[in-house]
Amino acid sequence: MSPFVPDFDFQRVFIAPWARDLASFGWIALMGFFVTAACGLVGNFLVLRRMALVGDAISHSVLPGMAVAFILSQSRGTLPMFLGALVAGIVATVLIELIHKKSRVKQDAAIGIAFTSLFALGVILINLYAGKGGVDLDQECVLYGEIAFVPLEPMVVFAGQTLGPIPVVRMALVALVTALLIVLFYKELLVSSFDPALAVSLGISATVVHYALMGWLSVVVVSAFESVGAILVIAMLILPAATATFLSRRLPVMLGLTILHAALSAVLGVHLAVWLDCSSAGAMVVAGTALFCAAWVFNPTDGLLYRWFRERLKAPAVHPG
């Protein structure tokens, strides 16, 4: 019996959470699902546009925006935080473009410069202003939220019905709006990602689509951050889309697979977290990565396993003896 890995007890890991603690585990799994689904849907377009790391950058850049919003409004209310993050996300996008276009610095370096300096600015702003007057806003609570506390948040009651904890309801709305925006602006997103020059010649501004995508990314990131932390958000911007890439070559199908990946990662993550008694967000990312690896190895069109078998079967014919 290893002291590092707890015993695997099927009853404890898979049955007990749902039988005994449905309320808390249910909300954690749902929260994980909504975060992963929203991030995954937006992430598909980031991966297609080869901007996967821009997601990482934006997620760090929202800090100064939230700090400024906090200083101006003196509250940690949802609306000021959202607006602050939105503005910061767009400022980060402009900054990256500016450095990259107006100097000889390449885009990857421009991303590195923009987000580290904005993040540092956020840390300084929080040190200077937020600590005073006994108000709590610190970089830890922005970047390292804990999904396990989600069930403890106050419940939203709407028309006499208890809907769920505030962060879960908020995230559900964000995920829903994300899906809706993708459905409504599918053709603009598609053509500007595939062939931006054609998009512009058709009268669809690739620049507007770019900033809109970055702006919405900031909204998704900030609504997830406070309650689940950075690791889940940043990982799930890339993992579901990358996994879907192995399983389909049709964007609508990939978007659907992203949502499936989100559901599986969330549920498997909860069980993994119960088994290992570890951070749920971390466990969800590990579960998502496991799904990614499974898709990589086992997918039927160009999976590693399939290719290995094919070469094994072909080999004797090509090299007799």
């Binding site: 297609l48 053709k187 598609l190 053509v191 990602s193 595939f194 062939d195 054609l198 058709l202 890439t245 389909s248 070559r249 049709r250 964007l251 990939m254």
Partner: peptide, 12 residues
Amino acid sequence: DFPVSVMDVVLM
């Protein structure tokens, strides 16, 4: 390598 079909491209 973009995940679209021939038809999708022509429809653009």
